[in-house]
Structures are given as structure tokens and as C-alpha cells.
């Protein structure tokens, strides 16, 4: 296991930021950490990196307890944060030298390789203040890669990037996983990116984990049926009366009862002379899943 959190709690004064969080990230996975602002994602990442001390519980990274053996735990870990901060008045290369020396001596050849890998060759001697947001993001990846990590932690890496930048970041993360075989923990608000990249996710809500599972399972889960008809209300009432659906969502979709099919629904509507312009099973997106999950968890959180 690359990351293991066991019943971790973090309090800031009276406020509980993370509560009873148990999380396991196996080697080789791209693991997504989702949650609203203030859900506890950054606090959880802070605890993994030994920047935030847990109030209770055990945090292990690369097999070492971060609170006791922080330097050993982080030996092969790289991290990239929401807004990569550098010494803007120094060159990109000098920044890489400074940051890499906090881990281990790094050869100029290794720096050259990594600069090349992220596509900053030719600009590494320029002051960071002259870099675009995308170049800063690449420099952030370069600094994380220098110690030849096995685990990369991304905390909101797409924030502030334009669509091209987000696509580039997604491709880079996929490359890191494919070419370097890294284990990646990705905390992000960009559900589309998480859906495309991650194999497994956990969702935090008000500091508690409300879901953990495979992306493939979420997609395969029973989804909604998109029903295109001029008389949606009548169609929904009829299908509900016949026990085909449990209800309607967003004014254009219905949710089938367990064991019922779209073919049955279509037949009943046609027999009742309700025109059916289209009916098809919609694969559940991560966004649908996430929003349902958060909505369902909200009353519980409000009670707390």
C-alpha cells in the first residue's frame, strides 16, 4: 500500500476537519479524492505529507508512519499543489536545485532529463516570474519528479488552468502513470478529469468519507433512462402506475425499477398512444453520481 490512513481525525480547535477517515491507496493506482470546498481533502493530503498533524489515527505513506518517520515516508514522494509557488526571482533551474536538495543531492544530468521530460528545455534559465501558468505547472511537475518518486500527490492541479492547460495536465498525469508507473493520488474538483484518469475514488463530505470504490463500478451502476416524449408528465405517471419506474429526474430522465427494462417502458407508452421519440439508458457519469451522493449526505451533515 502506498498510502494508508486508519481512522484519522483532525481537529482545528473545536472544528473537525477530517473525521474517522480510513483510506487505502494501492501501488500503481490513480486514486481520486473528491469533495466540496472544505470537505477535508487538503487537510487529508497535508496529513499524508506531514504538514498537518493528525489529532487521532495513523497515517502511513510508503509503509512508514508519517508522524514518526516523516523523512523516510517522504523519501520517494512528490507533491504538486493548487497554485505552485516558487521563488519567482530565481530561474526555473535554480528553483529545481533548491527544492531537490531538500530530498537528496541531484545531478545536473537528472535535472536536465526532468526538464526535458516536462518540456521546459530552453526556458529553464529564465526567471520563474516570466513563466506562464502552464509553464509553472510543468515546473511543479518537474520538481516533484526530481527525487524519482514512486508516489505523486496532486492537490487540485487544474485550478487556474485554461482548458488547454487542463487537457495538458490530464495528458501529463496519464503519461506519468503509463510511462513511469507512478502511483498517483489526485484531489480535484474537475469531475470530468477524475473520471477520465482515475481507477478508484473516495468522496469526502464535511470531513467524512461517504464513498470509496471503482470508477468502473460507478459507471456500470444502474443509471437513468433518458425519455424523449412530447408528454413527459403523462408518460411518467403511467410508468410509475405500472411499476416500471421509481420516479423522474431533471424533467427528462426516469429511474427504472430493479428488473425493469427500457423495452417494457417503450411498449407500455406506445400501447397507451403516448409518442416515444427516443428512449435509451444513460451511462451514469461521475458528476451524476457525485451530486446524488452529496445531496444524500447533506441532510446527515446538517443534522450533525
Amino acid at each position: 500500500m502506498m498510502i494508508s490512513l486508519q481512522q484519522v481525525q483532525k481537529k482545528f480547535g473545536a472544528q473537525i476537519a477530517v473525521d474517522d477517515l480510513t483510506l487505502v491507496v494501492p501501488r500503481g493506482e490513480i486514486f481520486g479524492l473528491l469533495g466540496h470546498n472544505g470537505a477535508g481533502k487538503s487537510t487529508a493530503i497535508g496529513m499524508m505529507l506531514g504538514q498537518v498533524w493528525p489529532t487521532r489515527g495513523e497515517v502511513k505513506v510508503c509503509g512508514f508512519d508519517v508522524t514518526i518517520q516523516r523523512t523516510r515516508a517522504l523519501q520517494q514522494v512528490g507533491a504538486i499543489f493548487e497554485t505552485p509557488a516558487f521563488y519567482d526571482y530565481l530561474s526555473g533551474r535554480r528553483n529545481l536545485e533548491i527544492l531537490s536538495h531538500y530530498t537528496a543531492p541531484t545531478s545536473p544530468e537528472r535535472i536536465r532529463q526532468v526538464v526535458d521530460w516536462v518540456g521546459l528545455t530552453g526556458r529553464e534559465q529564465s526567471a520563474v516570474k516570466t513563466y506562464s501558468h502552464g509553464m509553472r505547472a510543468r515546473l511543479a511537475i518537474a520538481q516533484a519528479l526530481l527525487p524519482a518518486p514512486e508516489l505523486l500527490i496532486f492537490d487540485e492541479p487544474g485550478s487556474g488552468l485554461d482548458p488547454e492547460g487542463i487537457a495538458e495536465m490530464r495528458q501529463t498525469i496519464a503519461r506519468l502513470h503509463r510511462e513511469l508507473g507512478l502511483t498517483i493520488l489526485l484531489s480535484s474538483h474537475l469531475l470530468g478529469e477524475v473520471e477520465q484518469l482515475c481507477t478508484r475514488i473516495a468522496v469526502l463530505n464535511h470531513g467524512r468519507k461517504v464513498f470509496e470504490g471503482q470508477i468502473a463500478d460507478i459507471k456500470a451502476a444502474r443509471g437513468r433512462v433518458l425519455l424523449k416524449t412530447p408528454d413527459f408528465g403523462t408518460a411518467v405517471a403511467l410508468l410509475r402506475e405500472r411499476g416500471i419506474i421509481t420516479g423522474a429526474v431533471d424533467g427528462k430522465s426516469v429511474v427504472l425499477h430493479e428488473g425493469r427494462t427500457t423495452a417494457e417502458a417503450a411498449r407500455i407508452l406506445v400501447e397507451a398512444n403516448i409518442p416515444v421519440e427516443g428512449i435509451w439508458l444513460r451511462e451514469q457519469t461521475l458528476e451524476d453520481f457525485y451530486l446524488d451522493l452529496v445531496k444524500a449526505a447533506a441532510p446527515a451533515a446538517d443534522r450533525n
Binding site: 505529507l49 506531514g50 504538514q51 516523516r70 523523512t71 523516510r72 515516508a73 517522504l74 523519501q75 514522494v77 512528490g78 507533491a79 499543489f81 497554485t83 505552485p84 509557488a85 516558487f86 521563488y87 527544492l99 531538500y102 530530498t103 520538481q143 527525487p147 500527490i153
Partner: peptide, 10 residues
Amino acid sequence: GTLRMILSRP
């Protein structure tokens, strides 16, 4: 924010 970058290192 540079200290957070530093303290992600061992």
C-alpha cells in the same frame, strides 16, 4: 506557499 512545497520533501 513555498514552505508547503519544501515540507512535502523529506
